[in-house]
Protein backbone atom coordinates (compact mmCIF):
# COMPACT_ATOMS: atom_id res chain seq x y z
CA UNK A 1 0.00 0.00 0.00
CA UNK A 2 1.42 3.39 -0.93
CA UNK A 3 1.91 6.10 1.65
CA UNK A 4 -0.80 8.27 0.15
CA UNK A 5 -3.32 5.44 0.29
CA UNK A 6 -2.35 4.61 3.88
CA UNK A 7 -2.73 8.23 4.99
CA UNK A 8 -6.07 8.53 3.25
CA UNK A 9 -7.24 5.31 4.91
CA UNK A 10 -6.13 6.55 8.32
CA UNK A 11 -7.92 9.86 7.81
CA UNK A 12 -11.07 7.99 6.82
CA UNK A 13 -10.93 5.89 9.99
CA UNK A 14 -10.33 8.91 12.17
CA UNK A 15 -13.32 10.53 10.50
CA UNK A 16 -15.54 7.55 11.28
CA UNK A 17 -14.29 7.48 14.90
CA UNK A 18 -15.14 11.19 15.29
CA UNK A 19 -18.60 10.60 13.94
CA UNK A 20 -19.23 7.80 16.44
CA UNK A 21 -18.12 10.01 19.32
CA UNK A 22 -20.32 12.86 18.13
CA UNK A 23 -23.40 10.67 17.76
CA UNK A 24 -22.82 8.74 20.99
CA UNK A 25 -24.82 11.08 23.30
CA UNK A 26 -27.83 11.01 20.98
CA UNK A 27 -27.63 7.23 20.59
CA UNK A 28 -27.32 6.84 24.36
CA UNK A 29 -30.41 8.98 25.04
CA UNK A 30 -32.38 7.22 22.32
CA UNK A 31 -31.49 3.84 23.77
CA UNK A 32 -32.17 4.71 27.40
CA UNK A 33 -35.29 6.80 26.78
CA UNK A 34 -36.93 5.04 23.83
CA UNK A 35 -35.73 1.51 23.20
CA UNK A 36 -35.32 0.63 26.88
CA UNK A 37 -38.81 1.65 28.07
CA UNK A 38 -40.36 0.06 24.98
CA UNK A 39 -38.67 -3.18 25.88
CA UNK A 40 -40.01 -2.90 29.44
CA UNK A 41 -43.53 -2.33 28.06
CA UNK A 42 -43.14 -5.40 25.85
CA UNK A 43 -42.00 -7.48 28.85
CA UNK A 44 -44.90 -6.23 31.03
CA UNK A 45 -47.39 -7.18 28.32
CA UNK A 46 -46.18 -10.77 28.64
CA UNK A 47 -46.40 -11.07 32.45
CA UNK A 48 -49.14 -12.00 34.90
CA UNK A 49 -51.06 -9.04 36.27
CA UNK A 50 -50.64 -8.08 39.87
CA UNK A 51 -53.64 -7.94 42.19
CA UNK A 52 -53.36 -4.22 42.90
CA UNK A 53 -51.78 -3.05 39.68
CA UNK A 54 -48.19 -3.72 38.75
CA UNK A 55 -47.24 -7.18 37.47
CA UNK A 56 -45.97 -10.40 39.03
CA UNK A 57 -42.39 -10.27 37.89
CA UNK A 58 -40.97 -13.11 35.80
CA UNK A 59 -44.27 -15.01 35.76
CA UNK A 60 -45.03 -15.04 32.08
CA UNK A 61 -48.44 -15.34 30.51
CA UNK A 62 -50.17 -14.31 27.29
CA UNK A 63 -53.31 -13.19 29.13
CA UNK A 64 -52.62 -9.53 28.38
CA UNK A 65 -52.40 -10.10 24.64
CA UNK A 66 -55.31 -12.53 24.74
CA UNK A 67 -57.62 -9.94 26.25
CA UNK A 68 -56.63 -7.32 23.71
CA UNK A 69 -58.48 -9.27 21.06
CA UNK A 70 -60.71 -11.74 22.90
CA UNK A 71 -62.85 -11.93 26.02
CA UNK A 72 -64.06 -14.83 28.10
CA UNK A 73 -67.72 -14.83 29.03
CA UNK A 74 -68.08 -14.57 32.82
CA UNK A 75 -70.81 -17.21 33.00
CA UNK A 76 -70.08 -19.94 30.48
CA UNK A 77 -66.38 -19.29 29.83
CA UNK A 78 -66.84 -19.17 26.03
CA UNK A 79 -64.32 -17.12 24.13
CA UNK A 80 -65.51 -14.30 21.88
CA UNK A 81 -63.99 -11.28 20.19
CA UNK A 82 -63.36 -8.43 22.62
CA UNK A 83 -66.23 -6.36 21.30
CA UNK A 84 -65.50 -3.32 23.45
CA UNK A 85 -61.85 -3.19 22.47
CA UNK A 86 -62.60 -3.57 18.79
CA UNK A 87 -65.15 -0.78 19.02
CA UNK A 88 -62.70 1.52 20.78
CA UNK A 89 -59.97 0.65 18.29
CA UNK A 90 -62.30 1.31 15.39
CA UNK A 91 -63.55 4.52 16.98
CA UNK A 92 -59.98 5.72 17.46
CA UNK A 93 -59.00 4.99 13.88
CA UNK A 94 -62.23 6.56 12.62
CA UNK A 95 -61.89 9.68 14.76
CA UNK A 96 -58.24 10.05 13.74
CA UNK A 97 -59.04 9.66 10.05
CA UNK A 98 -61.86 12.19 10.26
CA UNK A 99 -59.63 14.57 12.23
CA UNK A 100 -56.92 14.18 9.58
CA UNK A 101 -59.43 14.85 6.80
CA UNK A 102 -60.91 17.89 8.58
CA UNK A 103 -57.50 19.40 9.32
CA UNK A 104 -56.57 18.83 5.66
CA UNK A 105 -59.75 20.54 4.47
CA UNK A 106 -59.22 23.51 6.79
CA UNK A 107 -55.43 23.55 6.56
CA UNK A 108 -55.05 23.39 2.78
CA UNK A 109 -56.64 26.75 1.97
CA UNK A 110 -54.91 28.29 4.99
CA UNK A 111 -51.49 27.09 3.85
CA UNK A 112 -52.23 28.19 0.28
CA UNK A 113 -53.29 31.62 1.44
CA UNK A 114 -50.11 32.03 3.47
CA UNK A 115 -47.89 30.85 0.61
CA UNK A 116 -49.21 33.48 -1.82
CA UNK A 117 -48.60 36.39 0.57
CA UNK A 118 -45.54 38.66 0.28
CA UNK A 119 -42.56 37.17 2.19
CA UNK A 120 -42.79 39.48 5.21
CA UNK A 121 -46.47 38.80 5.82
CA UNK A 122 -45.83 35.08 5.22
CA UNK A 123 -43.34 34.94 8.10
CA UNK A 124 -45.75 36.72 10.42
CA UNK A 125 -48.61 34.35 9.54
CA UNK A 126 -46.46 31.23 10.01
CA UNK A 127 -45.38 32.64 13.35
CA UNK A 128 -49.03 33.12 14.32
CA UNK A 129 -49.84 29.52 13.35
CA UNK A 130 -47.28 28.33 15.89
CA UNK A 131 -48.63 30.47 18.76
CA UNK A 132 -50.94 27.73 20.15
CA UNK A 133 -47.85 25.57 20.77
CA UNK A 134 -46.81 28.02 23.47
CA UNK A 135 -49.65 26.94 25.73
CA UNK A 136 -50.09 23.59 27.41
CA UNK A 137 -52.51 21.31 25.59
CA UNK A 138 -54.60 20.78 28.73
CA UNK A 139 -55.16 24.50 29.13
CA UNK A 140 -56.01 24.89 25.45
CA UNK A 141 -58.50 22.05 25.73
CA UNK A 142 -60.19 23.61 28.73
CA UNK A 143 -60.33 26.87 26.81
CA UNK A 144 -62.07 24.96 24.05
CA UNK A 145 -64.58 23.76 26.62
CA UNK A 146 -65.33 27.39 27.39
CA UNK A 147 -66.15 27.93 23.72
CA UNK A 148 -68.41 24.95 23.10
CA UNK A 149 -70.18 24.32 26.41
CA UNK A 150 -73.86 25.09 26.74
CA UNK A 151 -73.22 28.52 28.25
CA UNK A 152 -70.15 28.99 26.05
CA UNK A 153 -69.30 31.45 23.32
CA UNK A 154 -70.88 29.56 20.37
CA UNK A 155 -74.21 28.85 22.05
CA UNK A 156 -74.47 32.31 23.57
CA UNK A 157 -73.83 33.93 20.19
CA UNK A 158 -76.29 31.68 18.36
CA UNK A 159 -79.02 32.33 20.93
CA UNK A 160 -78.30 36.06 20.90
CA UNK A 161 -78.50 36.09 17.08
CA UNK A 162 -81.79 34.23 17.29
CA UNK A 163 -80.80 31.12 15.31
CA UNK A 164 -81.61 28.77 18.18
CA UNK A 165 -83.76 28.99 21.29
CA UNK A 166 -81.93 26.64 23.60
CA UNK A 167 -78.27 25.67 23.58
CA UNK A 168 -77.07 22.87 21.32
CA UNK A 169 -75.39 20.07 23.22
CA UNK A 170 -71.85 19.99 21.84
CA UNK A 171 -69.87 19.06 24.92
CA UNK A 172 -69.43 15.35 25.58
CA UNK A 173 -70.29 14.34 22.01
CA UNK A 174 -68.08 13.16 19.13
CA UNK A 175 -68.49 16.66 17.70
CA UNK A 176 -66.73 18.12 20.69
CA UNK A 177 -63.86 15.69 20.16
CA UNK A 178 -63.59 16.63 16.44
CA UNK A 179 -63.68 20.27 17.38
CA UNK A 180 -60.92 19.93 19.93
CA UNK A 181 -58.73 17.60 17.88
CA UNK A 182 -58.94 19.71 14.74
CA UNK A 183 -58.03 22.75 16.80
CA UNK A 184 -55.10 21.06 18.50
CA UNK A 185 -53.63 19.34 15.45
CA UNK A 186 -54.30 21.98 12.78
CA UNK A 187 -50.80 23.58 13.01
CA UNK A 188 -49.23 20.15 12.45
CA UNK A 189 -51.11 20.02 9.14
CA UNK A 190 -50.61 23.62 8.08
CA UNK A 191 -46.85 23.75 8.59
CA UNK A 192 -45.78 20.85 6.31
CA UNK A 193 -48.41 21.89 3.75
CA UNK A 194 -47.06 25.43 3.75
CA UNK A 195 -43.49 24.14 3.49
CA UNK A 196 -44.25 22.34 0.23
CA UNK A 197 -46.57 25.03 -1.15
CA UNK A 198 -43.97 27.70 -0.62
CA UNK A 199 -41.69 25.77 -2.96
CA UNK A 200 -44.21 25.72 -5.82
CA UNK A 201 -43.06 27.66 -8.83
CA UNK A 202 -46.04 29.91 -9.48
CA UNK A 203 -45.29 29.82 -13.19
CA UNK A 204 -46.43 26.19 -13.17
CA UNK A 205 -49.83 27.42 -12.05
CA UNK A 206 -49.80 30.02 -14.82
CA UNK A 207 -48.75 27.32 -17.30
CA UNK A 208 -51.78 25.32 -16.17
CA UNK A 209 -54.14 28.23 -16.79
CA UNK A 210 -52.41 28.91 -20.11
CA UNK A 211 -53.10 25.32 -21.22
CA UNK A 212 -56.86 25.69 -20.76
CA UNK A 213 -57.12 24.32 -17.20
CA UNK A 214 -59.74 26.14 -15.11
CA UNK A 215 -59.29 26.84 -11.40
CA UNK A 216 -60.45 23.40 -10.27
CA UNK A 217 -58.34 21.57 -12.83
CA UNK A 218 -55.25 23.56 -11.91
CA UNK A 219 -55.84 22.63 -8.28
CA UNK A 220 -56.38 18.94 -9.11
CA UNK A 221 -53.78 18.44 -11.83
CA UNK A 222 -51.02 20.87 -10.86
CA UNK A 223 -51.15 22.13 -7.27
CA UNK A 224 -52.22 18.97 -5.41
CA UNK A 225 -49.66 16.68 -7.13
CA UNK A 226 -46.94 19.20 -6.38
CA UNK A 227 -47.80 19.51 -2.67
CA UNK A 228 -48.46 15.78 -2.25
CA UNK A 229 -45.38 15.27 -0.06
CA UNK A 230 -46.73 18.01 2.24
CA UNK A 231 -50.18 16.42 2.31
CA UNK A 232 -48.70 13.03 3.23
CA UNK A 233 -46.40 14.50 5.88
CA UNK A 234 -49.18 16.60 7.42
CA UNK A 235 -51.62 13.70 7.44
CA UNK A 236 -49.15 11.43 9.20
CA UNK A 237 -48.25 14.14 11.70
CA UNK A 238 -51.93 14.57 12.55
CA UNK A 239 -53.02 10.93 12.30
CA UNK A 240 -50.38 9.45 14.60
CA UNK A 241 -50.89 11.69 17.65
CA UNK A 242 -54.68 11.71 17.23
CA UNK A 243 -54.68 7.92 17.36
CA UNK A 244 -53.14 8.08 20.82
CA UNK A 245 -54.99 11.25 21.82
CA UNK A 246 -55.90 11.17 25.47
CA UNK A 247 -56.48 14.64 26.88
CA UNK A 248 -58.94 15.93 24.28
CA UNK A 249 -61.37 12.98 24.29
CA UNK A 250 -61.19 12.89 28.08
CA UNK A 251 -61.92 16.58 28.67
CA UNK A 252 -64.28 17.31 25.77
CA UNK A 253 -65.73 13.83 25.26
CA UNK A 254 -66.34 13.52 28.98
CA UNK A 255 -64.61 10.14 29.11
CA UNK A 256 -67.74 8.30 28.03
CA UNK A 257 -66.58 7.99 24.44
CA UNK A 258 -63.34 6.16 25.08
CA UNK A 259 -60.46 6.26 22.67
CA UNK A 260 -57.41 4.02 22.61
CA UNK A 261 -55.41 6.44 24.72
CA UNK A 262 -58.11 6.55 27.39
CA UNK A 263 -58.46 2.77 27.35
CA UNK A 264 -54.74 2.36 27.98
CA UNK A 265 -54.89 4.93 30.75
CA UNK A 266 -57.79 2.99 32.28
CA UNK A 267 -55.81 -0.28 32.40
CA UNK A 268 -52.90 1.31 34.19
CA UNK A 269 -55.20 3.22 36.54
CA UNK A 270 -58.57 1.98 37.78
CA UNK A 271 -58.43 -1.23 35.70
CA UNK A 272 -55.23 -2.35 37.45
CA UNK A 273 -54.42 -4.55 34.46
CA UNK A 274 -50.91 -3.55 33.43
CA UNK A 275 -50.27 -6.44 31.03
CA UNK A 276 -53.40 -5.54 29.08
CA UNK A 277 -52.43 -1.86 29.07
CA UNK A 278 -48.95 -2.72 27.87
CA UNK A 279 -50.30 -5.00 25.13
CA UNK A 280 -52.70 -2.26 24.02
CA UNK A 281 -49.80 0.21 23.90
CA UNK A 282 -47.84 -2.14 21.67
CA UNK A 283 -50.90 -2.58 19.44
CA UNK A 284 -51.13 1.18 19.07
CA UNK A 285 -47.42 1.28 18.25
CA UNK A 286 -47.88 -1.32 15.51
CA UNK A 287 -50.71 0.66 13.92
CA UNK A 288 -48.61 3.81 13.98
CA UNK A 289 -45.61 1.98 12.52
CA UNK A 290 -47.69 0.63 9.65
CA UNK A 291 -48.98 4.15 8.98
CA UNK A 292 -45.39 5.45 9.00
CA UNK A 293 -44.21 2.78 6.59
CA UNK A 294 -46.95 3.75 4.16
CA UNK A 295 -45.79 7.36 4.49
CA UNK A 296 -42.13 6.58 3.89
CA UNK A 297 -42.97 4.52 0.82
CA UNK A 298 -45.16 7.29 -0.57
CA UNK A 299 -42.57 9.94 0.17
CA UNK A 300 -39.72 8.07 -1.50
CA UNK A 301 -41.83 7.38 -4.57
CA UNK A 302 -42.65 11.08 -4.72
CA UNK A 303 -38.98 12.05 -4.37
CA UNK A 304 -38.07 11.21 -7.98
CA UNK A 305 -40.23 13.93 -9.46
CA UNK A 306 -38.62 16.75 -7.56
CA UNK A 307 -34.92 16.19 -8.08
CA UNK A 308 -33.30 18.77 -10.31
Amino acid sequence: MSDAARIAEEARRADIRTRWWLTAPALFILFIAAVGPLFVVLLFSLMVKGDYGDVKYWQFSTDGWFSVFFERDIFDDTVGLAQAHMEILWRSVKLSLITTLLTLLVGFPTAYYISIQPPKKRDLLVFMITIPFWTNILIRTFAMQEVIRNEGVINTLLIWAGFIERPIQIMYTDWAIFFGMVYVYLPLMVLPLYASMEKIDFRLVEAGYDLYAGRFQVLRRVIIPLVKPGIVAGSILVFIPSLGAYVTPRVLGGGKNLMLGNLIDLQFGQGKNWPLGAALSITLLVIVTVALLVYVRNASRQGGGHGH
Binding site: R203, L204, E206, A207, G208, V222, G305, H306, H308
Partner: peptide, 8 residues
Protein backbone atom coordinates in the same frame (compact mmCIF):
# COMPACT_ATOMS: atom_id res chain seq x y z
CA UNK B 1 -42.21 30.38 -20.49
CA UNK B 2 -38.77 31.73 -19.83
CA UNK B 3 -37.83 28.80 -17.60
CA UNK B 4 -40.16 26.49 -19.54
CA UNK B 5 -42.40 25.80 -16.50
CA UNK B 6 -42.71 22.13 -17.39
CA UNK B 7 -44.78 20.10 -14.92
CA UNK B 8 -42.20 18.17 -12.86
Amino acid sequence: FQNYALFP
